[in-house]
Simulated scan of single mutants.
Amino acid sequence: MIKFRSLLWVALAALAAPLVSVAHDPAAVMTGDFELTPDSLVQDGVPQGELKGPFEFRSGIITGTVRQYWVFVPAQYDPATPASVLVFQDGHRATHPEGSLRVQNVLTNLIHEGAIPPTIGIFITPGDTRAEFPQDLGWGNPNHRWQEYDVLTADYGRFIIEEMLPLVGQDYNLTDDPEQRAIGGTSSGAICAFTVAWNNPDVFRKVISFIGSYVSIGSRPPEDDPTGAWSPGGQDYPAMIRRLPPKPIKIFFQDGSNDLDNPWGNWFLANQQMVAAINFANQQAERVENGDTPWDPYRNAPTAHVAGVRWQEKHVWTDGEHSDKHGGHLLPDAIRWLWADTD
């Protein structure tokens, strides 16, 4: 009995102790105030560059929509040298000077610090199907967001690669090196960024995913047959990741233990499933390269495996809700890690 009580007190003390995110404990949760750091604020003596826009764009790939976009050009941009690229979804929130993200400020400060190369930011809103783009959105969303962000189709990636990058590339010298191209977002914008990289790792190999909606928002039955085959959704990604060889993608995850739990799914569990699947895929690749008997998917398709290719992931779980606040606090560290040479 004494031994049992001692163990019980040890367990209770462990539960009461503050948790931090550490590599050996994938479920650990970080707590704190998560206010913006100086990396996200305008700094005296730091060249500011220019945020241009908003501009309107009507896509020929995602037809019937109009959207806005902004382009951030750092002060260090040299037309003679291809600039790195960061594409960020929900551009009206990503660039808001009073918002939680302020991505253009983070790029400004990290470029000045030398943590990342001169990087052009492209910030894009979802499309809207009304005749004119609404000017009264505030913090809200255009009306074609989930149809672009939460589906697993290739259309949005084509829109970025075939329309937006060439459009901005008319005015600026953008790199074509996938290791120097990043794409990111929050919530549905996060799964959107992941999908673009998933389908196009030859174009984007860095991903920022905050409070990602790896749940069933994009999974719907046919409109004319509720009992028919449902379209795939974010909840399918962990299974796909586990069954396929790793992709050469580096991704930073953040989610909060108090994120949403609704008919689409449990968002925190969904993000943890993504990380678990990525680590399983990497372990499976190790088995293949070590000559061990691989698990069934690799036995069926051994030629699909590319030696040395691995996912790279870093995750920080916080006690946050479905909000950009914790991701905004971590954004400078996420970008530093994405551009670091080693994990």
Rank of each mutant, 00 (worst) to 15 (best):
F204W: 07
I183L: 02
E286P: 04
P248L: 01
Y237G: 07
N300I: 13
L260K: 14
V151T: 09
V168A: 04
H144T: 00
R299Q: 14
L15T: 12
W311G: 00
S209Y: 06
P294K: 06
W317N: 15
Y298H: 09
V215P: 04
Y149Q: 09
Y298C: 07
N282H: 02
D255E: 10
P82I: 07
T175L: 03
P332G: 02
W267G: 01
D90P: 00
R287I: 10
R310F: 05
S219M: 07
R242A: 15
W295C: 13
N271H: 04
E98I: 08
T153S: 11
L330F: 10
T129H: 15
W337Y: 05
P74G: 12
P222T: 08
P238S: 02
W337F: 01
T153D: 08
R145S: 01
F55L: 11
D202A: 12
A285Y: 07
A182K: 00
F123K: 06
I208C: 02
T293F: 15
T195I: 10
F57T: 11
Q89S: 15
H96T: 13
F72Y: 15
E286I: 12
F55M: 05
D33F: 09
G169L: 02
F123Q: 02
L12R: 11
S6Q: 12
T65I: 00
L7D: 09
R205C: 01
E179F: 09
N262D: 11
Q76K: 12
D341K: 12
R243W: 09
V22Y: 12
E163F: 00
D261W: 09
D176C: 04
P232G: 06
G60C: 13
R310S: 02
T81S: 15
S216K: 09
R158G: 08
D202I: 09
W9Y: 14
P245M: 07
F159C: 02
A75Y: 07
I208A: 03
I217Y: 08
P97I: 06
F159G: 00
P178R: 00
P54G: 12
R93F: 04
W339H: 04
Q43S: 08
H326M: 14
S219Y: 04
V203G: 03
Q235S: 15
Q170M: 10
G121H: 03
E35N: 13
P222F: 10
Y214A: 11
S59C: 13
R205E: 01
R102G: 05
N266D: 09
I335W: 00
A131V: 11
Y172F: 12
P246G: 06
G91R: 00
P47Y: 10
L107P: 06
V22D: 07
S187R: 04
I241F: 04
R67H: 10
T186E: 10
L19V: 10
V20Y: 11
S187I: 00
D225I: 02
V168N: 03
F268N: 05
N173I: 03
P302V: 04
N199I: 06
R67P: 08
F204T: 05
G189Q: 00
T37F: 08
F194V: 03
V151Q: 01
A334T: 01
D150K: 12
G138E: 08
P18C: 13
W230P: 03
H92C: 07
L167W: 04
W146V: 13
V42Y: 15
M240C: 11
N143E: 03
D319A: 12
P166G: 04
